[in-house]
């Protein structure tokens, strides 16, 4: 299924817009899939937000979920 993934901060320099990933149904498999497609991710300690909530354990990705890739915050 196509998953709508939005990237922020430094990750937005190499991932932008909606990227389509197949055979991915949870956040752990998404991570594995993304690092193959975007090897630069290997060096970034990023969090994943599913529907605006940062997840701390492997989470199922429902259809139409909004996924965001969040590198460490640096506001203020």
């Amino acid at each position: 299924m196509p998953i709508n993934i939005t990237a922020f901060g430094q990750i937005s320099e190499f991932i932008s817009g909606t990227i389509s990933v197949d055979k991915v149904n949870d956040t752990d498999s998404l991570r594995k899939h993304l690092v193959v497609q975007f090897p630069s991710l290997k060096d970034i300690n990023y969090a994943i937000a599913v529907d605006k909530k940062i997840i701390s354990v492997n989470t199922l990705i429902e259809e139409n979920a909004t996924i965001a890739l969040l590198p460490p915050f640096s506001g203020g």
Partner: peptide, 23 residues
């Protein structure tokens, strides 16, 4: 705010290069 707000700062240098800020 520094720890939990999803905001990112890109530090811009004089020579137009940049790096991502780390809190």
């Amino acid at each position: 705010i520094k720890k939990e707000l999803p905001v990112w700062g890109k530090e811009l240098f004089e020579d137009e290069s940049h790096q991502w800020k780390v809190n």
